[in-house]
Amino acid sequence: MPASGSRPGVLVTRPEPGLSETLEAVSAAGWEAYASPALLITQHCLRVASPRFAACVLTSGQAVQAAQAALPLTCPLYAVGDRTAQRARAAGFAAVQSAQGDAEALAALIIRKQNPAEGSVLLLSGARQGMALAARLRQAGFTVVRRVAYSARPVRRIAPEVLQALQEGRINVCLFFSSESAAGWIAALPASCRAQATRTIAIAISQAAAAVLKAAGWAEIVVAKTPDARAMLAALGRPGITTD
């Protein structure tokens, strides 16, 4: 338990972009926020052969930078969730629609709103991601050009101040925003801190992330109602207040 008078701690494993805003939201909800990004993001220099696409599909906010560099700001964008859509609008894109969900919801939105006859679709994703989405869109008649906008690799070490907070019992909840980041963060966690970490409450963005955490020994895991940051924060709630 946290020391008397101190706020209970929440560990945020999300990388930028998104880490800073999540830390702010966690702090505003009454928690002590600890930053421990699980992944290191490398942006890719994007080359696209076609001069024009009917639309662009973003599976992550990490892909906004690549879209901005490769496309006119008038190009219609389909974003996996609200945060990604907000970043696209902030980058200057005028026509942005959010699927408010996951890749399945994103595919459904594009199939409902976009006509395959209007032209090819550029899908920007992370390395080793987006293949199933591209296949689903092609099955629906779309011509899809998939490009890797960024790659993510696990961190090799966790900051000493985070490890100390874990060992001293100052962290009560850990937030995990993907199965990949959960696995990477756990791999970087020293064995001496494993028992303390798995005694925290884990909030997972998906069942896939929850499965990684369960295999690592977490006893108490809460899965967000929808796979997005808003649902993660709703599951966290405020200190001393249990959310459904």
Rank of each mutant, 00 (worst) to 15 (best):
P2H: 14
A3F: 07
S4G: 01
G5L: 10
R7K: 10
L11E: 03
R14V: 05
P15A: 13
E16A: 04
E21R: 14
E21C: 01
E24S: 15
A29G: 11
A29L: 15
G30W: 10
G30M: 05
Y34V: 09
S36H: 05
P37N: 07
A38W: 00
L39V: 07
I41Y: 01
I41V: 13
Q43V: 00
C45E: 15
R47C: 03
S50F: 00
R52L: 04
F53A: 01
A54I: 05
V57F: 00
L58I: 01
L58P: 05
T59H: 02
S60L: 03
A69S: 15
T74M: 08
P76Q: 10
A79W: 08
G81A: 12
D82W: 00
R87K: 04
A91H: 07
A95S: 14
A99P: 09
Q100A: 13
E104W: 06
A105E: 11
A105R: 10
L109E: 01
K113R: 15
P116T: 07
A117Q: 12
S120G: 11
V121A: 06
S125H: 08
S125N: 09
S125R: 07
S125D: 13
A127P: 02
R128E: 14
G130P: 07
G130T: 05
A132F: 00
A134R: 12
R136E: 14
R138V: 00
R138E: 15
V144E: 10
V145L: 03
R147C: 02
R147E: 13
A152D: 02
V155W: 00
I158W: 05
A159K: 03
A159T: 03
P160L: 01
P160A: 02
E161K: 04
L163E: 10
Q164C: 06
A165R: 14
A165H: 13
Q167A: 14
E168W: 04
N172P: 04
C174D: 07
L175S: 05
F176E: 11
F176I: 03
E180G: 12
E180D: 12
S181C: 09
S181G: 15
G184N: 05
G184F: 02
W185N: 03
I186T: 01
I186W: 01
A187L: 09
P190F: 07
A191Y: 02
C193K: 09
R194Y: 04
A195D: 09
R199F: 02
T200F: 08
I201W: 07
A202V: 08
I205Y: 04
Q207G: 15
A208L: 11
A210S: 11
A215W: 11
A216G: 03
W218P: 01
W218E: 03
I221F: 01
V222T: 11
K225R: 15
T226E: 13
P227Y: 10
P227F: 05
P227E: 12
D228P: 02
R230S: 11
R230C: 04
R230H: 06
R230A: 10
L233E: 09
A234I: 06
A234N: 09
R238N: 07
I241N: 08
T242W: 11
D244L: 14
